[in-house]
């Protein structure tokens, strides 16, 4: 469904030499995500998660390698065909991005109107989608009358209104409390079970650990690990001999004797998001 072949994404190529920002957003990434997969994309801020998602959407074009979505090399799609690619991809964000002056029904219908669906198709399909995300009976509510979790459900409904084969979620639970997040994850899981490929970038370790789905960890633009039923982090806390605590990469040789691990990663980078 989605295949990255040696994908490198360098922002601002002109200042590549000598600049500290020269490190690539993605660095020689090769990965394949199959139809119907549910993959978590984890990693510190600036590790390349957003770059990964934006490459799939062709918001940006890779500077090296190729990105294939549904069998097409996205870099080769002429610009006037890009909308067609995007119709096959739903996107959900941390900040919901609902239209404040439209009610729930209109927000979802908007996505269908934009691609030119008929009024009757919209009338039939929107309630179905709202039911799928668990918002029956709230069609007439305005976004500011909804809780965060409900708003995110509307956003998900909008993302899947045009029946995309791929759903990208960029920290969809980032603004939500754990209990609400579980509800959102159930919705995403249900969508995944209907056959939609879901890729979710997240910092929410609790969710990743409990879902036991594929986990792709990015760090500094490289894939650090790719496990089929992974956890949020493979790092474990260790206490150094001088008494300080830090997290260390848990590969199996160091698991028993953490003190011999020689590579340390800060689990939470400073919040310098990629542009």
């Amino acid at each position: 469904m989605i295949r990255f072949e040696n994908v490198t994404m360098v922002y601002d190529q002109k200042s590549r030499l000598g600049s500290e920002n020269a490190r690539p957003g993605l660095d020689d990434v090769t990965i394949e995500i199959d139809r119907g997969d549910f993959a978590f994309l984890v990693g510190a801020s600036g590790s390349g998660k957003s770059t990964f998602l934006r490459l799939i959407l062709r918001e940006i074009v890779a500077t090296g390698g190729s990105v294939h979505v549904a069998g097409q090399n996205v870099a080769r799609i002429p610009s006037w065909r890009v909308p067609k690619l995007r119709r096959g991809i739903g996107v959900v964000f941390q900040d919901f991005r609902l239209l404040p002056q439209k009610n729930v029904f209109e927000n979802v219908a908007f996505a269908m109107q934009v691609v030119g669906e008929s009024r009757s198709a919209i009338r039939d399909h929107v309630p179905e989608v709202l039911k799928l995300v668990g918002l029956e009976g709230k069609e007439k509510r305005q976004p500011d009358e909804l809780s965060g979790g409900e708003q995110q459900r509307v956003a998900i409904a909008r993302a899947i209104a045009n029946k995309p084969q791929i759903l990208l979620a960029d920290e969809p639970t980032g603004n939500l409390d754990p209990a609400t997040s579980v509800g959102i994850m159930n919705v995403l899981d249900r969508i995944n079970q209907n056959g939609t490929t879901v890729i979710m970038a997240t910092h929410d370790d609790g969710i990743v650990n409990s879902m036991r789905r594929r986990v792709v960890e990015l760090s500094l633009g490289k894939i650090m690990r790719d496990e089929s039923a992974g956890e949020y982090t493979s790092m474990i806390p260790v206490i150094n001999q001088d008494g300080t605590r830090e997290l260390r990469q848990a590969d199996h040789s160091t698991w028993q004797k953490p003190s011999t691990g020689n590579q340390a990663f800060a689990p939470f980078d400073t919040e310098d998001d990629m542009p």
Binding site: L57, S79, W80, P83, K84, L85, R86, R87, G88, G90, V91, R97, L99, P100, F110, A111, V114, V115, G116, R158, A159, A161, N162
Partner: peptide, 16 residues
């Protein structure tokens, strides 16, 4: 910009 951002994401053509 909100509307156009969403329109872009759900695949609105350049002309629309």
């Amino acid at each position: 910009r909100r509307e156009t951002g969403i329109m872009r994401l759900v695949g609105a053509s350049k002309s629309s």
